[in-house]
Simulated scan of single mutants.
Amino acid sequence: MENLYDSSYKSTTGTSVLSMVMRKVYGRMFLALVVTALTSLYVASSPAILSVVLGNRAVFFGLMIAELAVVFVVSGMLNKLSTTTATLLFYLYAVLNGVVFSSIFVVYDLGSIAYTFFITAGVFGAMSVYGMVTKNDMTKFGSYCIMGLFGLIIASIVNIFVASSTLDWIISLFGVALFIGLTAWDTQKIKNAAYVTDPSQTGKLATIGALSLYLDFINLFLYLLRIFGGRSND
């Protein structure tokens, strides 16, 4: 099977495939966000589970490793997985993410979380629409975003040891800008892929596309929360 992002052939029903793919992408992404939110709320409302997740480093880092493993499998082995398996792994990732992110309900008050979520939804929606309608090729821009992502990771690791509030603020602002850009680029990438994807492979494309946009949304939300979120003990 050809790579889902390969542009060596065009579907004769490109427009209808695009419409079908984008409906599936946003539908699966939305469901994954709901799964993550419900899982986070459930874990945060259970002191026993929360103490296990946050009070035991082995469990916490084990969950993070499991998340990375799921993303690697879905992204790196997509062509070898069935659509059903890839989609189930995506929702498993959403559950794991929900467990890990349950801590935000301890750190931030519920009002600021909701407020930041709506800001994120608005910004994400606007940039995703831009990625769909723009005629500009964002390939080169996307390459810069990927380089920026590596820089963001390095800066975040450095700040773990430096613990600079100024650097943390800069990282948060850069993170917001970066994932705003990635949202538009990933949307355009999915759109372009839909035009050249065999209709029989739209399920897998929708899953990997939903995963990409889900990650953009989650990270954009987390960086905005660091800026706008009110601490629960404030």
Rank of each mutant, 00 (worst) to 15 (best):
Y5K: 11
Y5P: 00
D6L: 14
D6W: 07
Y9H: 11
T13N: 11
T13F: 13
V17E: 13
M22R: 04
R28H: 13
V35C: 06
T39S: 08
S40L: 02
Y42R: 01
V43W: 10
S45E: 03
L50K: 04
V53S: 09
G55S: 08
N56C: 04
R57N: 13
F60E: 04
F60H: 05
L68T: 08
A69C: 07
V73W: 12
G76V: 06
M77T: 04
S82V: 04
T83I: 12
T83P: 03
T84K: 12
A86S: 09
F90A: 01
N97M: 14
V100P: 04
G111Y: 15
Y115V: 12
T116A: 10
T116E: 07
I119M: 13
G122S: 07
V123Y: 13
F124S: 02
G125I: 09
M132C: 03
V133I: 15
K135V: 01
M138N: 03
T139C: 00
F150H: 09
G151W: 08
I153Y: 10
I154G: 07
S156Q: 13
S164T: 00
S165F: 11
I170Y: 12
L173P: 00
G175H: 05
G181W: 06
W185Q: 11
K189N: 11
K191D: 09
A194G: 06
A194H: 02
Y195D: 05
P199K: 14
P199V: 13
S200P: 01
Q201M: 15
K204G: 11
A210E: 04
Y214D: 01
L222M: 12
L222V: 03
Y223S: 07
G229W: 09
G230Q: 15
N233W: 15
